[in-house]
Amino acid sequence: MNNSYGTDEYIEKAVATHSKRLLSAAYAVLKSTASAEDAVQETFIKLITKQPHFNDSEHEKAWLLRVTVNISLNMLKKAERNNPVTENEPVYTEDNSFQLLDLVLTLPVQYRTVIHLYYYEGYSIKEIASILKIPSATVGTRLARARAILKKELEEGAYEWL
């Protein structure tokens, strides 16, 4: 894949193509739109400063997602060190009804990251393991536990589980 990092065209295309998915991934981790924007900007800066070689557009997408998730997790750790919060505390509700997203955001960060990559990006367990650099079995366990929590909390029959 030819990455013309130094051109305006490459920068504009990369931002237009990937911003939405990276912001969503960062939001799933950070639960804050402002922090998600910071994390994604940092990711794009890394893209042009590190200038990694990509085999194809899927490789580029996976790299960007991994960097975004890692930056987001680091930001979360720093924020929690400075201002500890209790995990599993709901922070996003529109009308007091526990929607699916609200519930996902109450999951521990390891679970909601996997849920996001599985349900939003459509990655397989193996692909998520490759992106997060963790064993497939760990991804499978996190996914199963996250689903079990969500199923328990959501109204029975409300969603069709894949």
Binding site: A36, E37, L100, L101, Y118, Y119, Y159, E160
Partner: peptide, 16 residues
């Protein structure tokens, strides 16, 4: 509705 579609729908509504 499938859970992945609902999740996408909801997270896509988050405004940046």
């Amino acid at each position: 509705m499938a859970v992945n579609e609902k999740y996408k729908e909801q997270i896509n509504k988050v405004e940046f």
